[in-house]
Design a protein around this nucleic acid. Structure first.
Lengths: 210, 210
DNA sequence: TTAGATCTGTAACTTTTGTTACTGTGTTTA
DNA sequence: TAAACACAGTAACAAAAGTTACAGATCTAA
């Protein structure tokens, strides 16, 4: 484990902390689609993402979803942080967008390290800051953009995190994550294809010219 | 200052920390409508809200606004926290919704106290947690509710924080904060009046039956 | 290989939201 | 007090998004 820890967090944490993480952390691999956290669930460990992408989703009363943002290499789940500390339930769902590798930290260590290591504190603060900014970005999209712009932004973001200019999703899956209907997604995607921005295939969308 | 500090933060912080706050903090009163922070501005102090309400707004490219949430007694601005630490610009605008009293903490102390006082760390973490949850609440409203439901929720929330069942705003002002148009607000308010939920007057709205 | 299931495209329609324009009424100020 | 302004109500229309329905294409499994 130590190598992947060093590669991804070596520049952030001092050696003492890295050693502690190495001792108490447990390495974990999860496959694409794996549900890592569910709404209403209590959290017992904090994940440090080593590779892969995790998508964070919100749910409404009817069970419909909305994509909030993606976590990437070097990120942690800010929601988890205070869920651990405050013993409250998760407000969000986390699902592996790609295969992912993580280091799980027992929550007891969080409080201890926060007092002991300045670099840990800064990491946690930084992490909160990033998540707040991602939430702001999400709010901007929902509140200020029309659905066609949101869709294009979604496709670009998805392409970026997966490092693939082909989106492997059905229109229905995209509709779920944008909280709209399949017909609307199909309609707008067709428009984007006519504009030459994408190419539509069964189960996949090729991004071009963006 | 010490009395208002004790009243609002005495149960949170140990005496040593309260004394330090008392020494380095500066007391400040701001009138309703005062712009406390602007987008793009750098932040040099962290506010502890002692009384009153602060509204936090986001702006789009056209300069149109959207209300994110209210800060109340005992709250602090989570955005400020990492803006201080990371020396980044503010992403939001903060305006006094009512007359407000604050204690301003120089940012140098934040890092120092984070290492020194467990209660300070917990306060900061708690604060982040609350703000994240408020952002989630905001996202829920925008993404999942129709405008009439959002409007009603807005009126209730505004009434709650101002401790007044009369909303002293024009339709235009409400439209700005919900990021819609005056005509839409007037239309929906009229519907709510017909339903007996509110009473419309010039420059004010009386909430009843809610 | 056939029957079913899944995925996409599209038409027709409804609902919601946004826009423009105009009115009357109350408020402020020159 | 008259003129200018701010506020609210409403009609008529336009645009965006959501809904229902159906058809053809492709995939999957019995």
């Amino acid at each position: 484990m130590i190598q992947e820890l060093k590669d991804n967090y070596g520049h952030l944490f001092e050696d003492d902390l890295l050693n502690e993480i190495n001792q108490v952390g447990t390495y974990k691999e999860v496959p694409e689609g794996f549900k890592m956290m569910e709404i209403g669930q209590y959290v017992r460990a904090m994940p440090l993402l080593v590779s892969g992408v995790i998508k964070i989703l919100r749910e409404d009363n009817d069970g419909d979803e909305l994509l909030l943002y993606f976590l990437e290499k070097g990120d942690t789940c800010a929601m988890t942080l205070t869920c651990c500390l405050g013993q409250t339930k998760s407000e969000i769902r986390a699902i592996a967008e790609t295969d992912a590798k993580l280091i799980m930290i027992p929550i007891e260590k969080m409080e201890e390290w926060s007092g002991k290591y300045k670099s840990w504190r800064n990491f946690v603060f930084e992490s909160y800051h990033n998540r707040l900014n991602e939430m702001l970005e999400t709010i901007d999209s929902i509140a200020f953009l029309k659905m066609d712009e949101r869709l294009l932004k979604y496709l670009k973001e998805k392409s970026r995190v997966s490092e693939d200019n082909i989106i492997h999703n059905t229109h229905q899956e995209i509709a779920y994550e944008l909280h709209t209907s399949r017909v609307v997604v199909s309609r707008l995607l067709k428009k984007l294809e006519v504009l030459g921005k994408i190419e539509l295939h069964r189960n996949s969308i090729v991004l071009k010219d963006i």
